[in-house]
Design a binder for these strands. Structure first.
Lengths: 261, 261
DNA sequence: CCCCTTATGAGCATCTTCGAGCATGCGCGC
DNA sequence: GCGCGCATGCTCGAAGATGCTCATAAGGGG
């Protein structure tokens, strides 16, 4: 019984019963109460559950009922960022998405939201992406129109880049570009680690009426060298609640609409 | 046991069990734990798995669908057809692949063959495809250069079609187009059920120096209305051993190299 | 045929995880 | 308001996984 399995078991119980009991789970999983407590505290720090004396309860802000623990870093933060981003997508919009774990979550959130709102045919959202994994997931979701750019695949990131990608993008106009980035700060703007990806992202931003950056707090202290766009070109910035207020104020002052998911 | 074979083995286990154990895989594959750890870290950097203490777990960032695809009809026939097709792909070739269960098998066979032959860098095969599921699988399996066409996704077939697809294809030259079709016979040639897909397939065949059709026996008695190309444009036809000899003779007479997998 | 790059395995110091014990303090009943 | 019981948080030690380094093997290129 490793940590991952325990956390999943705990989330399953909470999803089913809305609460867990430390003692009972310790017996059931064959570990000490200390361990269960540590696990619950960790989940609580990620705002996935709320601690109570003797156990924990489900948080009111439960986004997806079948809560599955994703071992990726900053998973809950990304889910909340994604939910906030999805809310800003109006019916019928044409949305560009680049690759990355955050934007993958955004894609899922947009798809879920379209189902939830039961959008009419003419209000269907169109998603344009150069991320193979996002396309692969969205293809089966009927109520979204999916368009892929062409291009050569980069094995490390599941993104298509290169001249073919640029060609495709140059033939498309977007209402909104939602970009995950490797680094973002009030002075340097948005950046990527790979110059090929940066170029594609720049172009996608240029084809869009509005530009949204989605990034968890780690990206604000990260460094990357390939420039995507300046802060002045960014309309929305969605992040989590672990970002210094000073940074957010600077972004607001620069004309960016800042939203904390 | 080289690196690629190990990585494939690890991915297979993760796809099946949702998790791997460092120690167990080290024993099973006959290498040291350090090596397994290095492999898992590399996969983790590609977001294909998430490291846990003692092993790794699936990230769900796009590794569930390939499994669904494995259970196809006529599976053994398709696997043999695919293996025969893969053998006709020379090192360094630029190969076009359209969508479908047969061509998905072909993609896997080509990938496996490249691993088995341990192809040098300059002999890497380039695969150009408009099938999202194929792209998704091949991105994971590396050591193949992958190019996607752009286009709008068709939910039923995982294929990209439309003007963007045509535009991309018109900028590409192929050594070989490997096409799965819905119907093929000595008189009518190759056909598809969907006219959009047929158009893309026609274009792909037109961009290629050689055209190969892969189809199991059921396709020879099937009917479809959208024409892809005439028999005279087909260079190779790979099928299974349940096809009437008379049909094969007619195809040979028409100048098609017929191979029974 | 030789050299250089890369991959692999072993050893070692470090870090993480987990369980147990103990002082603390929260909450419930009186 | 008060005291008791129990969950909690913290610390410490043990077990084991990890990362790092180095030596060696293997493979590819010239």
């Amino acid at each position: 019984m490793n940590r991952y399995a325990r956390i999943n078991a705990l989330l399953d119980v909470i999803a089913r019963d809305k609460h867990v009991d430390v003692k009972r789970m310790a017996t059931q999983l064959g570990v000490s109460a200390s361990t269960i407590r540590r696990d619950l505290n960790q989940l609580s720090a990620q705002q996935l559950v709320a601690r109570t004396r003797g156990g924990a309860v489900a948080t009111s802000v439960s986004y997806d009922l079948p809560i599955r623990y994703r071992a990726a870093r900053q998973a809950p933060e990304k889910a909340r960022i994604a939910a906030a981003a999805a809310e800003l997508v109006p019916p019928g919009a044409i949305v560009g998405l680049n690759g990355g774990t955050t934007t993958t979550e955004v894609a899922r959130a947009i798809a879920s939201r379209c189902v939830a709102l039961n959008m009419a045919r003419q209000d269907r959202v169109t998603i344009v992406t150069n991320a193979i994994n996002i396309a692969n997931e969205l293809t089966v979701r009927r109520h979204i129109k999916l368009v892929m750019t062409g291009g050569a695949a980069r094995p490390d990131s599941f993104e298509l880049t290169g001249p073919l990608t640029s060609d495709t993008l140059s033939q498309i106009d977007l209402d909104l570009a939602i970009l995950g980035v490797d680094a973002f700060d009030p002075v340097g703007g948005a950046k990527a680690l790979d110059e090929e990806e940066a170029r594609v992202n720049t172009l996608m931003a240029g084809r869009a009426r509005k530009v949204m950056i989605v990034a968890d707090n780690s990206k604000l202290s990260a460094r990357a060298f390939a420039r995507i766009c300046a802060v002045s070109e960014v309309d929305y910035f969605i992040t989590d609640n672990h970002v210094p207020g000073e940074t957010l104020r600077q972004l607001s002052a620069a004309g960016v609409t800042v939203i904390v998911g």
